[in-house]
Simulated assay, not measured.
Amino acid sequence: MTTPSRGGASSDSPQPKLNDSGSFSVNTAKIITAVPANEAPAQAQVITSNALKYQAEISKFTGCPPKQLADHTYGFRVCFSDISDPRNFLPNAILDLNRLDGRAPPPCCSSYAVSLFSSLELLSVRVKAILKTNKKFLQKKGDHYVKISIDATCGRSTVADTHGHFDLFEYAHFNPVAAVAEVGGLAL
Rank of each mutant, 00 (worst) to 15 (best):
A40S: 11
C64M: 10
Y74F: 15
D20M: 03
Y74I: 04
F169E: 12
G184F: 09
P91H: 11
E57S: 10
G75M: 00
S124C: 04
N27L: 02
F61S: 09
I150G: 00
L120E: 09
P66E: 11
T3P: 03
Y171F: 15
Y171D: 13
S119W: 05
T48K: 12
D101E: 05
P14I: 11
L18V: 12
Q43E: 13
L120A: 01
S149N: 08
P106K: 13
H165Q: 06
V114E: 08
S59N: 15
L186F: 06
P86Q: 03
S23K: 01
H173S: 15
A9M: 10
F174Y: 14
P106S: 13
Q43H: 13
M1P: 10
N98M: 03
F174K: 05
E182Q: 14
R99S: 12
S81A: 10
F169T: 12
L90S: 04
A9Y: 12
D143Y: 03
F169M: 09
F24R: 07
V125M: 09
S5W: 01
G75K: 00
T162Q: 14
G75R: 00
Y145T: 04
N98D: 14
T162R: 14
L18Y: 02
S25E: 10
A129R: 15
S5V: 10
T3A: 07
N175P: 07
N19V: 10
V26K: 04
A56M: 09
T73Q: 08
L97K: 11
N175E: 11
A152I: 01
A113V: 04
A93T: 01
N27S: 11
G22E: 11
G142K: 08
S5Q: 09
S118V: 07
P107Y: 01
V177A: 14
F137G: 00
I83G: 03
N134V: 05
F76N: 03
F169Y: 15
K17V: 04
L18E: 05
L95G: 04
P176A: 09
L120N: 04
V78T: 15
Y145A: 03
L90W: 02
A187S: 14
N98V: 02
N27G: 05
K140L: 06
K60A: 10
T162Y: 07
L131T: 01
T162I: 09
Y145N: 04
S110M: 05
S119F: 02
L131W: 02
T73N: 08
A181T: 12
S13M: 03
D20P: 02
S5A: 13
P107V: 00
I32R: 07
G184H: 08
V180S: 04
N50K: 11
N88P: 13
V114G: 04
S59L: 09
A160C: 01
P106E: 13
G102V: 02
A93H: 01
S13A: 09
S157M: 15
H163G: 13
S21C: 12
I32W: 00
A178E: 03
K147P: 02
I148H: 00
K141R: 14
V114H: 07
T3C: 05
P106R: 10
